[in-house]
Design a protein around this nucleic acid. Sequence first.
DNA 1: CAGTGGTCTAGACCACATA
DNA 2: ATGTGGTCTAGACCACTGG
Lengths: 242, 242
Amino acid sequence: MSETISEAPAFRPLYVQVRDTLLKRLISGSWTPGMMLPSEFQLAKELGVSQGTVRKALDAMTAEHLLLRRQGRGTFVALPEEGRILFKFFRMVADGGERLFPLSQIVGRGRSKASAADCARLALPAKAEVWWIDRIRQLGGKPVIFERIRLPVSRFPQLGDMADIPNNVYALYSEEFGITIGKAEEKLKAALVDEAAASHLGCEAGRPVLIIERVAMALDDTPIEHRLSTCLTDECHYQAEL
Amino acid sequence: MSETISEAPAFRPLYVQVRDTLLKRLISGSWTPGMMLPSEFQLAKELGVSQGTVRKALDAMTAEHLLLRRQGRGTFVALPEEGRILFKFFRMVADGGERLFPLSQIVGRGRSKASAADCARLALPAKAEVWWIDRIRQLGGKPVIFERIRLPVSRFPQLGDMADIPNNVYALYSEEFGITIGKAEEKLKAALVDEAAASHLGCEAGRPVLIIERVAMALDDTPIEHRLSTCLTDECHYQAEL
DNA sequence: CAGTGGTCTAGACCACATA
DNA sequence: ATGTGGTCTAGACCACTGG
């Protein structure tokens, strides 16, 4: 009879190990966005595996939008601006179907003690501090989204010194703080607009709004950003494919 | 200078052709849900390609949840009941995090002339007819969703004869009408509950609700079902990963 | 042209399920 | 023990890009 020790699965395919190795280079920043990777053959030689195995790892990472491969050119670390990748993180669309990138206007910033809920969502110790950023976003020329972003001060130490916050904050996280957002989770509810949002969006009280709560994760799955968006959906909608 | 004729890409990799061949068998119904496919080697021999090429086609279809592969057992046509596949088509989740399959109660059925909007959404000719089904769905013991489904009569000729409609309509489409839903598109808005939904959900007027409009497509991308869901989101939410 | 990724093949061996 | 899918390799050739 074999031992009844509860063993870990413990079988990790080679290409998964290769993927992890390459992912570490992205996380550590030794490969930075836009950079071209060594060719499949070079990586295979360096890691002591076959080219097919490297390819399988690269293909998996490409499917996650971490890399970008172009036949004849090479394999590149994905940029946070890369058009369709930002689709991934912005699902509000004008009813007409136009794909617009919403402009933002910062209406408030600050630093405060994280609430218990924030600590839980961002996996922070008690008494941690967070930056908060309030902004309004426009879709069809009208302000339709009011959102409040919270970021752990520990991860973004110099954020308070920055004169202004760009429209594309994920590019900011990447370029200024070396943090790449890999995925996010969103929860949607309908509610009546609250006072703060109503005043910023210039709408009357009692309007129904779409509330989107997002937690965005870094490549190593650490929660990085919490974002609460309040959206007027008269002329736009949240679009999903399944 | 070369000609400026806009040429079709025209290069179709072998594994894409294999995928198309296999997909046709699913669409035509010669392979039915739950059925085990021939092994990779048998398919390779039959189609005159290598096993690796067949594998690539099967992997692609598995990624689309059309097939299910289990090591040591075989490759199977996905069943519409297959737990996680229905995740794909049901994103409303109780706030606690419990994954529940919502019970349904039919509150009305009928046949009527399709509106112009219905014809557009379902790609039907003018004056086409549709079945409509109204039902209420429960999540935490409480009715939280009122939905109206519209289906083209031309695709579901005998639907009127059926005594009742099961909870899982996608299984019904598959088993009784040979139509497999492959994907869907959803658009979400917030609104105030209308009279019909309020009376069915037993809530007061003026409540904010999440409106989900879905168009579901068959394997060949033909639109099959239009569904308008009205959801109370006090104790549940719509969940998305990106 | 050389260098890159993309496809395809053939074969070996491993992990898993079932009988 | 057998048959399935899963991994890994090695090598050939195709398609695309840029100098």
